[in-house]
C-alpha cells in the first residue's frame, strides 16, 4: 500500500509531468510563428517627440527588453487582468463601485502567489540541510500564528481563493455557461490538495520526519518507505498531488508554460523596423503589372497614363 502510494505513484506522476510538459512545449515550439502579431496596448514608439510613460513602453514594447518587462508584468502581477478592473465613483450614488472582474484579478493573483509560496515551503522536504531562504519564507508566511500549530497565511488565502474561483463558476450564469468539467475538476483537485494539506498540519499531525525521509529517498532514486507509520491522510494528499501532476500537461493548467509562447505578448512591436521571416512562406499566384497593362493597354493609353510598352 504505502509503496504504491508513496513510491510508485509519485514516480509515475513525476515522469508523466516532465515528459508531458516536454511533449507539449516541443509541440508548441515546432509550430511556426509566421507573423509578428503583438497586441499593442499603448502608443508605439514612432516620432521621437511623442513621449511615452514607462508603463506605455511596456504595454507596447519597442524592443525585446521591454517585451521581457511586459511578460514579467503579465506573469507576476497579471497586467492584462488588471486592465480589466475598474474602481469608479458613480456620480449619482457617490459610491465607489468595483466590478466583479476586480475580484478575478485579486483572487487570481492571491491564488497563484500562495500556490508558489506553498510550493517553496514544501521544498524543505527535499533538502538536508534546509537552505536558509526556505526558513525565511516559512517564517514570513507563518508570521501570524493564528492557531497552533502554525497555520500559514498562504493556507488560508489559497482556500479562500479556490473557494471564490469555484463559486464564481457556479453562481454566475455567464461563468456557468463557459465552464467545462475540466474547469471544476482542476479547482476541486487543487482545493482538495490544500484541504488535506491543512488538515495534516492542524488536525491529523503526521510525522514530518518520516515524510521527509521518504521524500529524500525518492529523490535519491533509492526509495525506502520509512518504518514509522505515515498517516493515510498524507497518502491521500500525496495521491491528489500526483493526480494534479499527471493531469497538468494535458490540461488547461499548461497556461503556466503557454503564456511564454503567446505571440501577442512575447513579441516586441518592431514590425516595421525589423524584418520577420515566415518559415513556411511559399510563392503565390499574383497578377503582375505587365499582365495588367496588357489587359488595359488601350484604355490606359487613351487616358494618357504612362505605359511600359507604347
Amino acid at each position: 500500500m504505502s509503496t504504491l502510494f508513496g513510491v510508485i505513484l509519485p514516480y509515475a506522476a513525476i515522469a508523466i509531468f516532465i515528459l508531458g510538459i516536454l511533449y507539449k512545449v516541443v509541440k508548441w515550439g515546432r509550430s511556426a510563428v509566421p507573423f509578428r502579431i503583438p497586441t499593442t496596448c499603448a502608443q508605439a514608439e514612432t516620432l521621437p517627440w511623442i513621449k511615452r510613460k514607462p508603463h506605455e513602453k511596456l504595454d507596447n514594447p519597442s524592443n525585446n527588453l521591454a517585451m521581457v518587462g511586459r511578460m514579467l508584468l503579465e506573469v507576476l502581477i497579471f497586467r492584462s487582468l488588471w486592465r480589466n478592473t475598474r474602481a469608479e465613483i458613480k456620480a449619482d450614488k457617490q459610491k465607489l463601485i468595483y466590478s466583479g472582474s476586480k475580484f478575478l484579478w485579486l483572487f487570481g493573483l492571491l491564488f497563484h502567489w500562495s500556490l508558489l509560496v506553498i510550493l517553496i515551503r514544501h521544498c524543505r522536504l527535499f533538502f538536508e540541510p534546509v537552505p536558509w531562504i526556505l526558513d525565511v519564507v516559512e517564517n514570513i508566511d507563518g508570521m501570524f500564528e493564528i492557531v497552533i500549530p502554525t497555520l500559514y497565511l498562504t493556507d488560508i488565502i489559497i482556500l479562500l481563493a479556490v473557494t471564490y474561483l469555484f463559486f464564481r463558476r457556479v453562481v454566475f450564469s455567464q461563468m456557468r455557461y463557459i465552464s467545462l468539467l475540466a474547469d471544476y475538476f482542476a479547482l476541486l483537485l487543487i482545493g482538495g490538495v490544500a484541504v488535506t494539506g491543512v488538515c495534516l498540519r492542524i488536525f491529523f499531525h503526521t510525522d514530518v520526519e518520516a515524510v521527509k525521509e521518504l521524500a529524500m529517498s525518492v529523490l535519491r532514486f533509492s526509495p525506502e518507505v520509512p518504518e514509522q507509520s505515515i498517516s493515510w491522510l498524507f497518502y491521500l494528499h500525496l495521491a491528489m498531488v500526483c493526480t494534479l501532476l499527471a493531469y497538468f500537461p494535458f490540461s488547461k493548467l499548461m497556461h503556466a508554460a503557454g503564456i511564454f509562447f503567446s505571440p501577442t505578448r512575447n513579441m516586441a512591436n518592431t514590425n516595421r523596423v525589423k524584418r520577420h521571416v515566415n518559415p513556411w512562406d511559399y510563392p503565390v499566384k499574383v497578377h503582375p503589372y505587365h499582365e495588367y497593362e496588357e489587359e488595359f493597354h488601350d484604355k490606359m493609353e487613351q487616358a494618357g497614363l504612362p505605359l511600359e510598352k507604347e
Binding site: 475598474r86 469608479e88 466590478s99 454566475f172 450564469s173 455557461y177
Partner: peptide, 14 residues
C-alpha cells in the same frame, strides 16, 4: 440569452 449575469456590470460604457 446570456442570462442575468449580463447585467452584473452596469457600467455606462462597457
Amino acid at each position: 440569452p446570456a442570462g442575468s449575469e449580463f447585467f452584473v456590470d452596469k457600467d455606462q460604457f462597457t
